[in-house]
């Protein structure tokens, strides 16, 4: 009960700080502007009028989400604990009758809510543009996209927090997280590509590898939600649809959930084993 109150009080504090922070506002604006551009261009283009399935808008938004949301969530997580440590605030907080895991959970919840707000505002604006233009994606697709973006965001936030608790300095944490972002967005995919082309990995291995990447899982899940099948992803997608069918949802959920829980648990462990100053 006390824990809940502590977490709630600190989480609200973190949320307010985040909402007022420059990074939050800039990321939200960047996300919304890019999303709006994609929505506007694709809704204005011909041929996409009311065609169901993965509309061009959704596909474009998936790309924007994949680029911006992980970066935003990772750096938000990276900066939080490490910079508190640098400013002595972490020591001060922990000198109060507050458990370390409570502080970490509060940061997770507060920053997570800020990310939810950012995603909802950005995608809401996009949906409005598409609605006004009369076409493009379906409401269900947008809702799925928003929900899965939040899932991806909190997974990346958890990862950022882990880096932040382990790092000595905030700048180092942010640096590591930018590298992680780059790895997840580009290097992992290029690795998969190399696996497919150079190493001729069998499709079940490729799919298993893709399941390990939170970004790929997000993408596949978005496709699955709007298309009910993954066959647009070629042989690997067909294999996944045929083999797992409706269980794909559970599979994707499990993978993303692991990306939330494992880093968060490791972060709690790291924070409780390290000194607070």
């Amino acid at each position: 009960m006390t824990s809940f109150r502590n977490v709630a009080a600190l989480a609200r504090r973190e949320l307010r700080d985040a909402l007022a922070a420059r990074w939050f506002i800039l990321y939200t604006i960047a996300f919304a502007v890019l999303g709006l551009a994609v929505s506007y261009v694709s809704a204005a283009s011909a041929g996409d009028a009311g065609l169901s399935g993965l509309g061009r808008t959704t596909a474009g938004l998936v790309n924007i989400v994949l680029l911006i949301i992980p970066l935003m969530a990772l750096t938000a997580g990276a900066a939080s604990v490490a910079s508190d440590r640098e400013r002595g605030m972490l020591a001060y907080l922990l000198a109060l009758p507050v458990a370390r895991w409570e502080v970490l959970l509060a940061k997770f919840v507060g920053l997570g809510l800020a990310l939810v707000a950012s995603i909802c505002l950005g995608l809401g604006a996009c949906a409005a543009v598409v609605a006004v233009q009369g076409g493009g994606a379906s409401a269900g697709a947008i809702a799925w996209l928003a929900g899965l973006s939040v899932f991806l965001a909190i997974a990346m936030l958890a990862l950022g927090l882990l880096v932040s608790t382990a790092a000595r300095k905030a700048s180092a944490a942010v640096g590591v997280c930018i590298f992680l972002w780059f790895s997840l967005v580009f290097l992992t995919d290029l690795g998969l590509l190399a696996g497919a082309i150079a190493f001729r990995l069998p499709i079940e291995r490729l799919f298993a590898a893709a399941l390990g990447s939170p970004l790929q899982v997000f993408k596949m899940w978005t496709l699955l939600a709007s298309d009910a099948t993954l066959d647009v992803l070629g042989p690997v997608g067909v294999y996944a649809s045929e083999t797992f069918g409706g269980r794909l949802h559970a599979l994707f959920a499990a993978s993303l959930a692991a990306w939330v829980i494992v880093p968060l648990a490791l972060a709690v462990l790291t924070l409780s084993r390290r000194s607070a100053v």
């Binding site: 006390t2 009080a9 007022a20 400013r87 002595g88 001060y92 109060l96 009758p97």
Partner: peptide, 24 residues
């Protein structure tokens, strides 16, 4: 502490409230 490191944006009254809550 030697120097108070706390949420800089917090108003003094809010800080008192927050710490009071954290102290239960």
């Amino acid at each position: 502490p030697q120097e108070l490191g706390f949420y800089d944006d917090l108003r003094v009254g809010e800080a008192v409230h927050l710490v009071a809550r954290l102290k239960g």
